[in-house]
Each structure stands twice: as C-alpha cells, then as structure tokens.
Write a protein that binds this DNA or RNA. Structure first.
Lengths: 180, 180
DNA sequence: GATCCCATGTAATCGGTTACATGATTCC
DNA sequence: GGAATCATGTAACCGATTACATGGGATC
C-alpha cells in the first residue's frame, strides 16, 4: 500500500506560490484552503524539515531588522517542483467525510425533536457565517492577487465551498420545515 | 480536552434500531451513512467489545441452524440508550474535510490544464454515480422501512448527500467551462 | 499589566486504516 | 475448482490533533 503524506505536498504547493515561513503557511491554510483542507502546526513544521532533508526545499534564516528575530524562510527547489507536479498528475484519493452533525441527525429518532431542531439551527448559523467568509475572501483575493496566475484556481476552489454551503443551507431550511 | 470515541456512539446508534452482528453494522454503515460517516472493521469489533464491557450492550451467541455457525448478536441496554441519548444532545464537533481533489485543483497552476480537466471530469463522473446511488437507496428505504419511525431521519440525512452532490455537480460543469 | 499576535518547535496520545488471519458457505 | 460473501477478529502502523514549551513585540 502506497503511503500518502499529503502534508508534504500541501507545503510544497504553498512554496510553489512563493517562499514562506512555516507560520505563514499555517496562516494561508487557515484562510484559503481550510474549508477543504487543513493542517496543524504539528504537521507543517516537521514536513518542512523533511522537505529540506529530501532536497525538495531550501531554508534560509533571515534576520528581521526591525524585530531582531530570525525567520526561517523556505523555498521550493526544482526537484521539489518535480515532486509536486508528479503528485498533482496522480488521481486524487476519494474524500472521506466524517460529519458528526449528520450522524446525530441520522440517529435523530433516539433524541427529542427539540434536540434535532437545535442542531439544525446551529448548523444553519455556522453555514451563514461560512458563506459570508467566502464572500470576503473572494473580494480580498480578487484585489490582492489581481494578476496572479494562481487566482483562477483559487477562485474555483473557493467557489466550490461557496456553492456547497449554499446547497447545505437550503437543505437545512427545508429540513427544519419537516419539524413543524 | 474531551475525548471523542465516536465509533462507540455509531455502534450504539445502530443497535438502537435493532440488534445486529458486527458484520451487519459494517454493512449498514457502508450502505446508509457512508456519504457522511464511515467506520472500518478494525474499529467496529473492538467498539462492540468495549460496549459490552461498559454494560452499554449485551452479546448473545446464536447458532444458525442452517449453517451451523455462530453469530454474535449485540443488543443495546437501557444504560446504552442513556449514553447514546446524552451524546445526541451534545453539540456536534465541527466537520473537518480533507478533499484531496480540491487541494490539487487549488494548486492547479503547477499542473497542466489537461491534468486539471481530467481531475474535474473524474470527479464529475463519481458524483453522477453517487447521485444515482442516493436515488436507489431512497427507493429501497421508503419501501423496506415504510413504517419505521427512523425513516424520516434517514431520509433527511440522505437528502443532504443528494443535494450537496447535485451542487457539486453543477460546480463541476461550470468549472469545466473555464478551461475552454 | 494583560492579552494577543508572531514564530518555531516537540511529545504524547489517539483515532483510524490497512493488512493479515481464519474458515465456512454459496454460487458460478 | 474458484470466487464471492458471511463472519470475527488482531496487529502494525501512521496520520493528525492537542497540549506543552518558549519568548519577543505590539497593542490596549
């Protein structure tokens, strides 16, 4: 069985955009891919070290003049780009979702409908927030990265989240009607 | 930090419908909750044993007359129902998704558009299959469990998958247009 | 003075998948 | 004879989260 250390590719993909520190990569993931892909610090920093060991990235320590602190800025190598590209070509693994909220609804007969309604309303609220976030991110991206060749792909991925959340929201509202 | 051994609750939820063997629970998960919740044998069997140890379920070995083989049929206890109900009342943990396909699209600038189109088409096909599966399951459920008090909740959860897949499909088609 | 943000990491733990093992039955 | 399904489990491994540790700077 083939291993799938996806964190490595996530990190390489980010470094293919521009050189970054581990902290910056973490922030980027949180604000741009979080709705379909997340990583924690406990994975990102080791993955960066691993990339350097495998010559997929280089690390340059830089002294910040203003703060007198050292940042580790990672850059992708030609070898790293090759590895990333090879991975990108391969068929994606099927998505495994674990939606605890839906599981609880599925077992809803064992709860009270008050509980079920409460869960639905809560989910609905989080969806409404999510949709607003997508709209904000879209605005920010289209202005801040107007000429970036990556923008097209980022917007497609963003739109996925947006459209799915909209569909979920509609489903939520219709499901709530069934409890009246 | 609170632990979340969700397999235990999944198993209890299934046993709250009717007594089952581990194998049957596995099958049920595969055919009914798989689009939002999956479990593997390696989790189900230990979880069943754990439930018996914690007095949340009982196990009855039954000899099948025809096959002369022993089945372990598990039933939920009153205590088990209580534990399940308590869990059902609690707020659900937010869903963490890891969609490798979207991650690859997000990094699409580093691949060729041929690769991106190929991934999109592949995803589209799997969505179309998925949608057909939902329609089949709906038919089976509504006839086989016509009078079950669980049916309402099952259909709500099923409809979630159906509506989300439909939205994903639309997004797929629109995204493909961007590559022409 | 406290809190938040920048910044980098490690260690413990656990959740979950995969692979392996076994064996009987049924269907082709 | 071989493949698929029923049926139950174990062990190894690893992927991932969480918590912990550290410390400077900025902001309120």
């Amino acid at each position: 069985m083939e291993k799938r250390n996806r964190t490595k590719y996530t990190v390489l993909g980010m470094l293919a955009i521009a050189p970054f520190t581990g902290y910056e990569i973490k922030k980027m993931i949180q604000t741009s891919t979080n709705h379909f892909w997340s990583e924690s610090e406990g994975q990102i920093y080791p993955a960066l070290i691993q990339c350097v060991q495998e010559c997929l990235a280089t690390c340059k320590e830089e002294l910040m003049k203003d703060t007198r602190r050292v940042k580790k800025i990672y850059s992708i190598t030609a070898q790293g780009k090759k590895v990333l590209n090879t991975w990108l070509k391969k068929e994606a693994q099927p998505t495994l979702i674990r939606n605890e909220f839906l599981l609880k609804l599925f077992f809803g007969k064992n709860a009270t409908d008050n509980d079920n309604i409460h869960h639905l309303r809560h989910y609905q609220k989080s969806l409404e927030k999510e949709i607003l976030t997508y709209e904000e991110i879209r605005k920010k991206l289209t202005t801040a990265h107007k000429n970036s060749p990556h923008l097209k792909y980022w917007l497609i991925a963003l739109d996925y989240g947006f459209k799915v959340a909209k569909a979920e929201l509609l489903w939520c509202k219709e499901s709530l009607k069934l409890f009246n």
